[in-house]
Write a protein that binds this DNA or RNA. Structure first.
Lengths: 355, 355
DNA sequence: CGTTAGCACTCCATCTTCTCGAGTGCTAAG
DNA sequence: CTTAGCACTCGAGAAGATGGAGTGCTAACG
């Protein structure tokens, strides 16, 4: 069923206005809008029909209308004007991103903070790898008589290390042998296959350096497991409380608690595998706690088999246009930043957008 | 001026009760307490005097009494019964800590979460080093024709690494020379001294590997700077909203915002340098936002020149005895865990306490 | 002299009632 | 098809009424 142009226009106005004011909007308010050339009575009729179509709702008789979940859906999918960032905003965002982002988790924190600032809502950022990581190469550095630094290069191109204290002294020669052994036996093996069996096999050939093996294996397995898991960061939680719909402390607490818990872990599942922005409107939502609450998430690739998502959590009436615009811009900038080889730190080329 | 025993007892009861109920306590409630052998009228007299001494306050005539900041102070300093952990609690806490805590920031997150769970309040954990870190040793590992892994061992005994992509190919020999050069010139130097001058000097001697030098120096300086800074983690923010005093959204928001901002950065300064537990009661507090709010922080050493702090933020009427007991226990367990060499992962010896 | 019972008084929290106004749906005229 | 007009609905917020918890004071008690 297709809506008339006028109905669409009215619906759009209702949503826009509701987004701004957070209060039910009446026919008069719509009629007063600058580019609305009908009287409030006409609008009323249209609104009545939109209501019976399930796109608007009335909190009670004689209150204005509020968009229903279906109404938001339609708005997001069809009616929303895709709001470009102004030049200023784009500039300030990209200069913020430019800073060197060292490690993944630091990066996530930073990004979450930026997104939160840009949207004035709580923001989530997460990154995960698809596929199993394996160790690709081991190096052992002798850091003293009784300490060794283990450096492991992973298939994901990430490098991890750990300083080990030993109860016994080891020689350079020991380490050389051990490193060769590790590279021969423990590379290319997914986390799941680090079993007691493998341990025994490796230790048997390890000679004097045998006591080191279990520790290194533990560390490796742990690291690989961690690689598979999802990192995430949240910022700007307090912003939620500034919004009128969360003046109800109970509601706010539910949402905030769902951050603490692992409830958000399965966001990636909900998002599916395609990149792009998804809007989860109110009841369609992931966690039960998040009625009245929408989640907007953008998924994108950051190279090297990693996927990242950024998103915000806010009231269902949040300004979707603004939020999605900002998220897409962030996503784009970030994936550019990451696909670029880290090394030649070229001054960011002209990637600005028109206003 | 010294209070009579009875006054002390009354004061303690008022605070205890207020902690539990979050409501002004009346004379009758105190008199009804099991080990209170006076009538409500007597208690009333005592309370009136305590009020005129500034230790209690009345929200208004004909409401019960509430401890004043000074009252809390006295309570914390003298009256509080130091509440030992029950055996069960101690056991559950130490088993939680036992898990391997890999990196500092992971560790902080985990600890904050645990503390928050144990106290049912928002918790903060932070760690910082005192003194300047320097690089102690450089190793370069060739990871392919055009990539190198830089491994830096710091004076703090932490090891960091970074994978570098190069625009040019390098040989093992190049790297060996460069590593020697780095170890000769860039070790033992604090972050502040990584100047353009040093860069030029090192590059002059670097030969074919010269292009690598600036990147490594950048990374080193950045790392050292980060070492000096304080890491921190916060958990359980949503718990704040469960407390009656923060049903006032504005108040809650102020406190939660102060987490987001860097307001807490100067907590270390306020804490001074001695180890131990400090209670910052309401108005004595750090940030202006935190009126009505107290902060309990415990500072302790975790070896290798690192100091850590754990603490909670909550209403001034929080259960100080419980909170400090738990914090001290955490602090003790953690500093034990860290002072122990990581390697020989002995089954935790008997460090339980009596009930 | 310290302790306690009794009592008048205060003042907040809570509930009820009332009023006001925004917004609606319907009808009839343009 | 659009618009003006009007009676009607209903919630938000103000105003008022009620009850009870808690106080301070006084006087009696051991």
């Amino acid at each position: 069923m297709e809506l008339s142009e006028r109905k669409k226009k009215v619906l759009r106005c209702v949503v826009d206005l509701y987004i701004r004011t957070a209060e039910p909007v009446g026919s008069k308010a719509i009629a007063a809008l600058p580019d609305m050339s009908y009287s409030s009575a006409t609008i009323r009729n249209e609104m009545a029909e939109l209501t019976s179509l399930g796109l608007l709702e009335q909190p009670h008789t004689s209150a204005g209308r509020v968009p229903s979940a279906a109404g938001y859906r339609l708005y997001v999918d069809e009616l929303m004007e895709d709001q470009r960032l102004s030049l200023d905003e784009a500039r300030s965002i990209s200069s913020a991103i430019d800073e060197k982002l060292q490690r993944v988790d630091r990066m996530l924190e930073k990004v979450a903070k930026l997104v939160s600032q840009a949207t004035e809502l709580p923001a989530i950022s997460l990154a995960s790898r698809q596929g199993q990581a394996t160790a690709q190469r081991f190096d052992l550095i002798r850091a003293g008589d009784q300490s060794v630094i283990v450096v492991i290069m992973l298939s994901t191109e990430e490098v991890v290390n750990k300083l080990l204290r030993l109860p016994v002294a080891v020689t350079e020669a020991d380490l050389k042998v051990l490193a060769a052994l590790l590279n021969a036996t423990m590379t290319g093996i997914p986390a799941g296959d680090f079993t007691g069996q493998l341990l025994e096999k490796v230790m048997a050939s390890a000679g004097t350096a045998a006591p080191l093996v279990p520790v290194i294996m533990d560390f490796t397995a742990e690291t690989l497991r961690r690689q598979g898991s999802t990192n995430m960061a949240i910022a700007g939680q307090a912003k939620l409380l500034g919004l009128p719909e969360y003046r109800d402390v109970d509601k706010a607490q539910k949402v905030l608690s769902s951050f603490d818990e692992e409830a958000l872990r399965d966001l990636p599942a909900v998002m599916g595998s395609e990149s792009g922005t998804k809007v989860l409107v109110g009841p369609e939502n992931v966690a039960q706690e998040l009625k009245d609450t929408s989640v907007v998430m953008t998924k994108f690739d950051i190279g090297e088999g990693m996927q990242a998502m950024i998103g915000v959590v806010g009231p269902t009436r949040m300004d979707y246009a603004k939020v999605t615009a900002r998220l897409s811009y962030f996503a784009e900038s970030l994936s550019k930043l990451f696909s670029k080889p880290e090394q030649p730190q070229l001054p960011e080329a002209k990637t600005r957008q028109e206003e």
